[in-house]
Design a protein around this nucleic acid. Structure first.
Lengths: 181, 181
DNA sequence: TGTTAGTGTCACACTGATGTGACAGATACT
DNA sequence: AGTATCTGTCACATCAGTGTGACACTAACA
């Protein structure tokens, strides 16, 4: 593949992720225009809109899978893995702001992959509970959901927070809350 | 207005909120069909799709405004007001699952109203911080975002949790986190 | 029971988005 | 510089959703 083609492809995917996150009904024409590319160029690479969406989802899934691997959720010490995961997943969430739950209906194949990644995190949080990092009187799924949302919040509502700061804040408030003790 | 008309109108608004929450690009025809009503009936009540969306947003805003009033965020004791607000806002979030941020682009008027309600909560959380309920080393906006997301999580990802239970869990984990101390 | 308000349905015009064909022109790589 | 690759553009067919008109029909309310 030629170098400019790679550039364009990349621009289309990222621009698509951004615009579709703002408005899921964004047209291909709008994405192409924003990416500085003709509409026809997008259609050459992706036969249908579904295919474009699928490619965007795959790109996000590729990034987050790398993060899950690097964090060593199974082998590493729980606190360390947690901090590392959070710190690394924030840039991914920022680069690919597209809503993951949306792919559920749009692309069953990608959704299966997403669920598998989600299950890895489930197991990690379960392990954190087993090893006594988490309170026993709170559902594990609740802690899991909280982790997800704290990451999303830091990534998108606090764009000025750099990943290490964000990770500190997230882990701290996840474990200790925001109340004065 | 005739009684059956009221029923139909109500069904359209609720069905619309539900379907649009799942898929923001749901057509009027789909909403009408799901509500057991002809497409033409919807158009008689709402001249345009925008108008239907606006009505749905207004319905949600009406409900949540009542909750904000009842919670007495300014006068009541902070802990009491917090618990009451959370307990009452959960059913509202469940009945009107439509995404509030989406109305930002769709309906500027409704958005202004939403921001005003949001500001009331901002002030309440600020007051909670001032009165020492919240840690001083965490941004107030962070606590605010956390509150929002915990409510959403309890409302939609834990549909079996009844409002009082949910309120206990939310307030507890908001203030104390999910970590063993 | 009669009147009125409200609904369902066939039909139609219009708009915007999707997807395709063909071809000339530009750009990257050797 | 030459070649294969990639892109922009005019044009077109298609489809789904929006919004409207007219008319017969049904259900609520007095």
């Amino acid at each position: 593949m030629r170098a400019d083609a790679v550039r364009n492809l990349d621009a289309v995917l990222r621009t698509g992720a951004r615009l579709l996150a703002e408005d899921p009904s964004t047209s291909i024409a709008a994405i192409a225009a924003e990416a500085g590319v003709d509409r026809r160029t997008v259609y050459r690479r992706f036969p249908t809109k579904e295919a474009l969406l699928a490619a965007i989802f795959q790109a996000k899934l590729d990034s987050s899978e790398r993060v899950l691997d690097t964090a060593r959720l199974v082998e590493a010490q729980v606190a360390v893995a947690l901090h590392r995961y959070v710190e690394d997943i924030i840039p991914v969430s920022r680069e690919w702001p597209v809503d993951v739950r949306r792919m559920m209906r749009a692309d069953p194949a990608a959704n299966a992959r997403r669920e598998e990644q989600s299950a890895r995190l489930d197991r990690f949080v379960q392990r954190a509970a087993d090893e006594g990092l988490l309170r026993a009187d709170v559902p594990v799924h609740w802690a899991r959901a909280m982790l997800n949302h704290l990451v999303d919040t830091a990534a998108h509502q606090f764009p000025l927070l750099d990943p290490p700061q964000a990770a500190d804040l997230i882990v701290d408030t996840l474990l200790n809350g925001v109340g004065r003790r």
